[in-house]
């Protein structure tokens, strides 16, 4: 039972953190709203890290956590987090290698209009991440079945998030001869979904950590009544609760990643726990993070809202906290 990062894992995390800080910033996130191409340079730098899709989920999560902490935009996260594990499960060795060593990008189209990320027969798939700048889209239909297509002409969905772009994608007609639908064993899809949930949760705990760190730093620096606001117990206890929620969620995410890596029978429950715990922690960090900042936190100018926007999008993608709790209830009751 070892939850400590080994030397390589620490190095991986530090490298990810350094790369994201060097190549990306909240200023670029703001610019990205009007001009998504500002993320191209970052995407190029991240290409080499496609190989993470081949390794343990724990390592991928360490990297994704930093992506979430730095609000990384572009196709990298959906490629390694969503698309690659699906291809691996489909046994599409060529497509998978294109991602891990060839810099190919992809995304997944499955969700319906209600935001349920489960196979459905809808002709249009919603909330497809970064669909206008990936090489491939894997569309999941009833069955479940998967069709991998080349670039598509998606319709942009305006959302609150400024750092992740979402789209509507039309499912290819079932008669399409170019890209036949491949049947997928539902149990195998369930394993892929568990990976998605944990990857999304890893990103979320990164975003939660950033919001918490901003609030903690502000509490130490901002003075009122002649002393730092962080000396007031009402503020201290909020931060203690945020820290506890973040620590718990972090542990739940890496437990789930280890359980998936070990094909442990607990992995499906653990994946739901991870996404729900991460969403819960991030919501607390967002709400109390704003409260601790006072008026400045409510401005467009301050960066905090960029993180809150990203948190809300991560929370609502791949199933909300409540959705995962309801799946868990089905498993435990």
């Amino acid at each position: 039972m070892d939850f400590a990062l080994n030397d390589e894992q620490q190095l991986l995390r530090d490298t990810a953190r350094a790369l994201v800080t060097r190549e990306w910033s909240t200023a670029l996130v703001r610019a990205h709203m009007g001009d998504p191409s500002v993320a191209d340079e970052l995407t190029k730098r991240l290409t080499d890290w496609g190989a993470l899709a081949e390794g343990p989920l724990v390592d991928l999560c360490l990297f994704l956590e930093e992506c979430g902490a730095g609000l990384v935009a572009g196709p990298f996260v959906p490629t390694v987090g969503l698309y690659a594990p699906l291809l691996a499960t489909l046994g599409d060795a060529e497509g998978f290698t294109a991602v891990t060593t060839g810099g190919a990008t992809g995304t997944v189209a499955i969700a319906d209009r209600t935001g349920a990320w489960v196979p459905n027969d809808g002709a249009t798939k919603f909330f497809v991440p970064e669909a206008d700048r990936v090489d491939h889209v894997a569309v999941i239909g009833p069955g479940p079945s998967v069709t991998v297509t080349g670039p598509v002409s998606p319709r942009f969905i305006a959302t609150v998030d400024t750092s992740r772009r979402l789209f509507e994608v039309d499912a290819p007609p079932s008669t399409a001869s170019t890209a036949p639908a491949v049947r997928l064993d539902p149990d195998l899809l369930a394993d892929v979904q568990a990976r998605w949930y944990v990857a999304a949760a890893a990103e979320l705990i990164g975003t939660a950590r950033s919001m918490f760190e901003m609030a903690l730093a502000y509490a130490k620096q901002r003075e009122q009544f002649g002393r730092p606001i962080g000396s007031f117990q009402a503020i201290q206890h909020k931060l203690a609760n945020m820290a506890l929620a973040n620590e718990s969620a972090w542990s739940a995410v890496y437990y789930a990643a280890m359980a998936i890596d070990a094909a442990d029978p607990d992995r499906h429950r653990a994946a739901h726990v991870a996404k729900a715990a991460a969403g819960t922690a991030a919501k607390l960090a967002a709400k109390d993070g704003i409260q601790i900042h006072g008026g400045i936190g409510y401005t467009w100018e301050h960066d905090l809202h960029l993180f809150i926007r990203r948190f809300e999008s991560s929370e609502h993608l791949l199933g909300t906290t409540e959705w995962h709790e309801d799946r868990l209830a089905d498993l435990i009751l």
Partner: peptide, 23 residues
């Protein structure tokens, strides 16, 4: 059902946190 699942999330996160602390 929702409340039981919420509790499950917390309790199982705490076990993982315990192992992290142990490490």
């Amino acid at each position: 059902r929702r409340k039981l699942a919420e509790a499950y999330v917390t309790v199982h996160s705490l076990r993982a946190l315990g192992y992290k602390g142990f490490s």
